[in-house]
């Protein structure tokens, strides 16, 4: 699987019009090979979620070219959407439904054969320890339980490419381990994982390649080994590249002034 499954050429996106126009993505170029886990990191407001939303078809008016499996996203949106999975950063669910009803609906939308639907839902719910809640309304679920359903919904169609935007939010330690295990196995099956997060330790451990963006441009791209200069952690690499080392000095100055 060494072919490029995702290609971004000069991706630009801005919000607002006229004097209020703000460019969030200022020309992103990326080429992602199949079977890789890409850690997509950056400070708040860097443009991570915007990139993911564009790739999943939630945002349309962007400039540049996006190819997924060689298909232009603007021309072949439906075909591409059938092959991707998306775990959003917000808890967007039909909350008054049960997991069985919700995942059943998504299976219909993905046109998954009925005989496979039940089996797939059952095994995914079991994997995440949610079987006993399969017929309970989701409005009674905790944040972590909802997050698990969002992740299950993201993989219900057995996607070739999975986009995750802060997928571990609200999950307990055991569930985090499960998700990491799942992602590693999916990558081993040749699936491509595009993982956007603030949690550096997870990105550091699971990513084959790390893309760091800041203010709408890619400022670093490579394996963790390539990015670190010495024995530094990804967090330290991030701080160095995004200029947040100054924050440490500011914090020290603040505490000195408080003492």
């Amino acid at each position: 699987m060494n072919e490029s499954v995702i290609v971004l050429k000069g991706l630009r996106k801005s919000y607002g019009k006229g004097s209020e126009r703000k460019e969030v993505l200022k020309g992103i170029d990326l080429e992602i090979k199949g079977g890789q886990i890409i850690g997509y990191i950056g400070p708040n407001g860097a443009g991570k979620s915007t990139t993911v939303k564009i790739l999943c078809g939630l945002l349309k008016d962007f400039e540049g070219e996006i190819l997924v499996n060689g298909l232009d996203l603007k021309q072949n949106e439906m075909e591409i959407k059938r092959k991707i999975g998306y775990v959003p950063e917000t808890s967007a669910l039909y909350e008054t439904l049960t997991p069985n009803e919700y995942l059943g609906l998504l299976s219909t939308l993905f046109e998954i054969p009925e005989d496979k639907t039940k089996e797939r839902i059952e095994s995914l719910l079991k994997f995440f320890g949610m079987s006993e809640h399969a017929n309970q309304r989701m409005d009674s679920f905790s944040k972590g339980m909802r997050q698990k359903i969002l992740i299950i919904a993201g993989v219900i169609n057995n996607p070739e490419i999975l986009f995750l935007d802060e997928p571990l939010s609200g999950l307990d330690a055991n569930s985090v381990i499960l998700v990491k295990e799942m992602l590693t196995k999916l990558a081993a099956q040749g699936k491509t994982i595009f993982y956007s997060s603030h949690l550096m330790d997870v990105v550091e451990k699971i990513s084959d390649r790390i893309v760091l963006i800041n203010e709408g441009v890619v400022i670093a791209d490579g394996t963790f080994e390539e990015l670190k200069l010495d024995n530094s952690s990804l967090e330290q690499v991030f701080a160095r590249l995004t200029g947040s080392t100054e924050n440490v000095e500011e914090t020290n100055a603040l505490f000195e002034s408080l003492n």
């Binding site: 939630l58 439906m78 959407k81 967007a92 939308l109």
Partner: peptide
């Protein structure tokens, strides 16, 4: 809320 659910699906 529904846009989040459906716009990324086919």
């Amino acid at each position: 809320n529904e846009n989040y659910i459906l716009l990324s699906r086919p």
